[in-house]
């Protein structure tokens, strides 16, 4: 059994088949990338794993948990964290507060103890804070700790999203286009971070990305999709030289 196993999954939006009988599996410890032209259904795969949509067929199993039997909020508690293509942060909260929400799945206190802010709540808050501070150090966000998201530049927000996902202390991290809209330097940073996330933190990464440089630099395996279906699966070099993939990209451009 693989770490994450997506099997024969199909999802339709009205007439559009966003995901078409798709199967792939991600092994523990690897960086797995999904590529494909716009509208290929990459983000929809993430949304299926996050349980935002119900597929009409197929199964998704993560680390022994049948995700299709779980609620959307439970997915995070199993250890799956994600970022969003169009950045979905808590805009009116500070960076620190955003990251602390990431600790939510480790909440061991209840309403009553929080109402009185008992010593156990205080202890948990301190622990959360320590954990979050490590992430802040790791991603160099010290300067923005107390800033509200609403006033931050785009590149910083992208990093905060990654930080918030890491704050959940995940086993599997889903990154939806982590480098889109970033400058060349920022993309380089992102590349080293993804490497460190896998090597130092031991987190499995599943990522959607258009930047082939980044994809071939960090990923072990690549899945190419078009129109919701699998085109090719293999090492970055194999996929890049696959005729069907070249065809799909050129066909898309033409």
């Amino acid at each position: 059994m693989s770490f994450l196993e997506v099997k024969d999954t199909t999802l339709k939006f009205g007439g559009v088949t966003a995901v078409d009988n798709l199967s792939f599996s991600v092994e523990e410890g690897e960086v797995f990338a999904i590529v494909g032209p716009n509208g290929a259904g990459k983000s929809t795969v993430f949304n299926l794993i996050s349980r935002f949509y119900d597929p009409i067929a197929g199964s998704i199993v993560f680390d022994g948990h049948d995700l299709l039997k779980s609620k959307a909020s439970e997915v995070a508690t199993f250890g799956v964290a994600r970022t969003f293509q169009n950045i979905e942060l808590f805009d009116q909260a500070t960076v620190l507060e955003n990251l602390l929400v990431g600790r939510h799945r480790h909440r061991g206190t209840n309403f009553v103890s929080e109402l009185f802010f008992t010593p156990s709540v205080k202890k948990q808050e301190l622990q959360s804070r320590h954990f979050v501070e490590e992430i802040i150090d790791f991603l160099d966000l010290q300067a923005y700790r107390e800033k509200r998201i609403a006033g931050l530049p785009y590149g910083v927000r992208k990093v905060v999203e990654v930080a918030r996902a890491l704050a959940t202390d995940p086993k599997l991290l889903l990154l939806d286009e982590p480098a889109s809209g970033l400058s060349v330097e920022e993309t380089t940073d992102m590349r080293w971070w993804i490497d460190d996330i896998r090597r130092q933190m031991g987190i499995t990464v599943l990522m959607v990305e258009h930047d082939m440089g980044l994809v071939s630099g960090v990923s072990d395996r690549v899945l190419a999709m078009a129109d919701g279906a699998k085109l090719a699966l293999g090492t970055p070099q194999e996929v890049q030289s696959d005729p069907a993939v070249i065809e799909a990209y050129l066909g898309h451009v033409a």
């Binding site: 996050s50 959307a72 964290a81 979905e88 942060l89 808590f90 929400v101 939510h104």
Partner: peptide
């Protein structure tokens, strides 16, 4: 959406 993705 992201609250949900954080386990809320």
């Amino acid at each position: 959406v992201s609250a949900q993705a954080m386990g809320v």
